[in-house]
């Protein structure tokens, strides 16, 4: 029986699913109204994407977290269909947590989602890559992190750092 240590405790807490899969599956009734759905396999993959994203961005989240809300907002988008819904949601999940860390926690979940989905609808061209390349997104990042949108040509450098 392994003794409880502080690091092991955090690691153990971090590796739990925390109900994200159940929360996503529970969304299916709502998603069906928009002709969308998430299969159990897709839900498992999304939970894994979330876990890895949190790990890579050195973040910690308890409970279902942001992914179900991302899923709800994405369902209202004019750009997604059943076939690419889970894939786009996975990409947005990665981008969301990366952005939270890059912004040094100076932006609320709701504020960030408002910006992401506004840009998603109007500037992304309907792809996660298009959204990640969007200069306005990086200007927003500099604004919340540094208090200054910064020079135009700084955007590319920031984008490269992000990759």
């Amino acid at each position: 029986m392994e003794a409880l240590s502080f690091p092991a405790l955090l690691a153990g807490l971090d590796s739990r699913g925390d109900g994200v899969e159940a929360s996503l599956l529970a969304l299916n009734d709502t998603l069906a109204e928009d002709g969308l759905s998430l299969s159990p396999g897709e839900v498992r993959e999304l939970a894994e994407v979330r876990r890895l994203s949190l790990k890579e961005t050195r973040r910690f989240e308890v409970g279902p977290g942001a992914v179900p809300e991302l899923a709800r907002r994405l369902a209202r988008s004019s750009y997604v269909c059943r076939e690419d819904y889970a894939g786009v949601l996975a990409g947005l999940t990665e981008l969301f947590y990366e952005f939270k860390t890059e912004a040094e926690d100076r932006v609320d979940d709701d504020e960030l989602m408002d910006v992401l989905f506004d840009l998603w609808e109007h500037r992304s061209g309907g792809t996660v890559e298009g959204l990640a390349d969007c200069r306005d997104l990086w200007a927003f990042l500099r604004l919340v992190r540094d208090g200054d949108a910064g020079p135009e040509d700084g955007a590319k450098e920031e984008e490269e750092d992000f990759e």
């Binding site: 955090l10 973040r59 942001a66 947590y97 926690d105």
Partner: peptide, 30 residues
């Protein structure tokens, strides 16, 4: 303990973020 930690994270972020940096989580758990 996990539920209480979630409450502490909620207090720390004023309910505005469901996730925090690991260092923050460690400090809150400590």
């Amino acid at each position: 303990l996990m539920e209480r930690l979630a409450e502490q994270i909620g207090l720390w972020t004023n309910g505005r973020s469901s996730s925090v940096m690991q260092e923050t989580a460690e400090a809150l758990l400590n």
